[in-house]
Design a protein around this nucleic acid. Structure first.
Length: 715
DNA sequence: TCTAATCGAGTTTTT
DNA sequence: CTCGATTAGA
């Protein structure tokens, strides 16, 4: 390890400042990870016990990679260092102190599906929303509840700020949120948010424990600090103390988790909370060639609130990033595959990534890749432990540990034919009131149920290692698997076998269950060789590839349709675009399809290019247009823009650029909806006003569109 | 009363 | 494809 030659001045200062609070503002690709890795190694070399270091990161993968790299520098692994996410750290700490948080008999961690099911059950128990087609879905209910908790605002405030269309349901939502909290308490259930809040309270109230942890973790490092929320910041405060040796690392321009309650103010306020903070800025970029940085700097310069950032690099290249305009999202998939094959001659396939805004956007590409026989590895979207068959097996595993686990019972018993939600609830009640009579009748009626109960009794009696228990469960589940998924059970079987493999590494069942829900896909651990990477941008955070392709850069997809309503959401989309582009080391290609398939109408809709592409000056990229023959030609996209002409289009863009609140909302009495005109779609009839300042309009020739009032001229 | 089957509407991002 | 409302049948 040579700190003098391997690090620049700013990095070296961050590594060598081991005492007191440090805030590292690290631009994209500025060697942030390298700095953390060297600091870990440096601390250990200075004689710090690795067990005294706590490394909090955004994913477990990131933490383990950093620890491994530090170990490689030192020539021996770091033993005993605590590294992981806030959530997994909280889970482990709470497990050791269950009685102090009011769960003397332990608690069960719920995953997203469990939480949604509780929301639905509470809604039904309260008899709310019966027959109302536009009633918020269980996913929406949960979104509001967790958002309100993560931002530490009332539901009313969250609704007022960002979900105005839900305001008719405010009272219902508050009632459901209360019911949700009560239900969790009654059943010893804990959701992801609870992990953080319970740890915060535990540390605030329990001085001996707080002191014990402060002594144990003398050096704390927190990565991706711009994506922490208020409660996470408090936890750091508890653990570090006012004069703690704590280093926070982050980049305000890469804050992309506001939807989850992340608060950029945390990183700005860090020096206020920790007195005497040393602030270090890493600005030189070591990842990307200069032409890519020219483009990413342009993305940031369009931000509403300017960033004090300008990335620069010594890496030269005379190849500009490309912007490709395919005719449709179908040809986009084909052109992407061709481009990947092309890149594959220069780079290893796992060094090429395709990034997109939402998980479903890669589906056409996945089909195209499969057709030509290219292997791919997808990040984001459905996680390993969320697949139905994995959840089924985990439910059985959970029941072995905790017979009171209601969510697991629901899952396990609903496989029995002839038993639905109502009967499950009655069985659960009967078991807990020792109603032997009902149990006898119901087991007599359903053979499958009796077998299930017998199996669980047998499993509890054997009390072996997790892997042994799991093996027996897999055997028991086999017929259910085949019955439930006759079409694709072999594929799912492979997933179950993988689960078996994972279980071999564990001796403690609680730890296994916790890790599975908290640390994502064990599949993600290593990058497959020779497989191109497909990833949501959120899942690509902190990673880099030689070549990066971003697809679906059109309005309504990226930026997401849901982010077009509020200026602050659009700003987060811009930062997301920045994160995506800064992942690229040498090649960056942006795809802007001219039309996308619309499932509703079954035809392809014309698209508008993403504002983030439109505003780029033509000097920073090379435009390529797909000809009708399917080949690519260098040409200005403006030459071939369809129909309505560029004048109308630029007029619309100017309008879009104005902040939405800048103009008073056009007022229309919803009682008598009339006609309106739109710059692009022309004259249309207003058929509904689903929310204030939002209209459903039928445009002849274009169909029904939902549009913000600001873009309409009322007639 | 409850379950299973069918139909129609709507799809962001994650610990 | 997935969720929820609706409905026919047990």
């Amino acid at each position: 390890m040579d700190i003098e030659t391997e690090l620049n001045n700013a990095q070296r200062e961050a590594v060598l400042t081991t005492e007191g609070p440090v805030l590292v503002i690290a631009g994209a690709g500025s060697g942030k990870t390298r700095t953390i890795v060297y600091r870990l190694a440096h601390l250990v070399r200075q004689g710090v016990d690795p067990a005294q270091i706590l490394l909090l990161t955004f994913t477990r993968k990131a933490a383990q990679e950093m620890l491994a790299r530090a170990g490689a520098i030192l020539g021996h692994p770091l033993t005993g260092t605590s590294g992981g996410t806030f959530h997994s750290f909280a889970y482990a700490t709470l497990r050791r102190n269950t009685s102090d948080i009011g769960f003397g008999n332990g608690f069960t961690l719920m995953d997203r599906a469990d939480c949604e099911a509780v929301c639905r059950d509470v809604k039904e128990t309260l008899k709310l929303g019966k027959g109302d087609r536009s009633y918020p879905k269980k996913a929406t209910l949960l979104d509001m509840i967790t958002k309100s908790r993560n931002k530490e605002l009332t539901i009313a405030t969250v609704m007022e700020r960002e979900a105005y269309h839900l305001s008719p349901y405010l009272d219902d939502l508050s009632a459901i949120a209360d019911g949700y909290a009560v239900f969790k308490k009654q059943h010893a259930l804990v959701d992801y948010d609870d992990l953080l809040f319970l740890l915060d309270t535990l540390l605030a109230d329990n001085e001996p424990l707080r002191n014990q942890l402060r002594t144990r973790y003398r050096y704390i490092m927190v990565d991706e600090y711009q994506d922490t929320n208020l409660v996470q910041a408090r936890i750091v405060g508890h653990l570090a103390g006012e004069r703690g040796n704590v280093m926070a690392v982050g980049d305000d321009a890469q804050s992309i988790y506001a939807f989850r309650g992340a608060n950029v103010a945390n990183i700005m306020d860090f020096p206020k909370i920790f007195e005497g903070t040393k602030i270090i800025r890493l600005e030189k970029n070591y990842r990307s060639v200069q032409p890519i940085l020219d483009l990413t700097n342009e993305i940031l310069s369009g931000a509403a609130i300017k960033f004090d950032k300008h990335l620069y690099s010594d890496l030269k290249s005379d190849v500009l990033p490309q912007v490709v305009y395919p005719l449709s999202d179908q040809t986009q998939a084909r052109l992407t595959v061709e481009h990947i094959l092309d890149l594959g001659r220069k780079y290893a396939l796992h060094d090429v990534a395709v990034l997109f805004r939402a998980g479903y956007q890669s589906f056409p590409l996945e089909v195209a890749l499969t057709r030509v026989g290219l292997d791919y590895q997808k990040f984001g979207g459905i996680r390993f432990h969320e697949a139905a068959h994995i959840k089924d097996v985990l439910a059985l595993l959970r029941l072995v540990v905790n017979p009171h686990d209601l969510m697991a019972w629901q899952r396990a018993v609903e496989h029995v034919k002839g038993i639905g939600p109502k009967t499950v609830a009655r069985i659960y009640r009967a078991m807990h009131t020792d109603d032997a009579k009902y149990m006898a009748t119901i087991t007599k009626k359903h053979d499958e149920l009796r077998e299930l109960l017998n199996e669980l009794d047998g499993l509890r009696a054997m009390a072996g290692r997790p892997s042994a228990i799991l093996e027996r469960i897999l055997a028991f589940y086999q017929p259910i698997l085949i019955d439930k998924y006759p079409d694709d059970y072999p594929k799912r079987q492979a997933g179950l076998e993988q689960l078996g493999q994972i279980a071999h590494n564990y001796t403690d069942m609680d730890q296994l269950l916790g890790d599975l829900s908290l640390d994502g896909d064990p599949d993600d651990e290593k990058r497959k060789e020779n497989a191109v990477v497909l990833s949501t941008i959120h899942s690509a955070k902190g990673l880099e590839w030689s070549a990066v392709i971003i697809i679906d850069l059109v309005e309504e997809r990226f930026p997401s349709r849901k982010a077009m309503q509020r200026p602050e959401d659009l700003e987060e989309e811009r930062r997301l675009m920045y994160v995506a582009c800064t992942r690229a080391k040498e090649c960056l290609t942006l795809f802007v399809p001219s039309s996308v398939y619309n499932r509703q109408s079954g035809i392809s809709d014309p698209t508008l290019p993403s504002p983030f592409v439109l505003e780029l000056p033509s000097t920073v990229f090379t435009p390529l247009k797909e000809s009708y023959g399917g080949s690519l030609e260098k040409r200005w996209p403006v030459d071939s823009r369809p129909s309505f002409g560029t004048a109308a289009k630029s007029a619309v863009r100017e309008q879009d650029a104005q902040p939405v609140q800048a103009r008073p909302a056009a007022t229309v009495n919803p009682e008598k909806l009339g006609f309106c005109t739109h710059k692009i779609f022309g004259r249309g009839k207003i058929i509904a006003c689903p929310a204030p300042n939002k209209y459903k309009v039928n445009f002849p020739g274009f169909g029904i569109k939902t549009i913000i009032g600001d873009y309409l001229e009322m007639l």
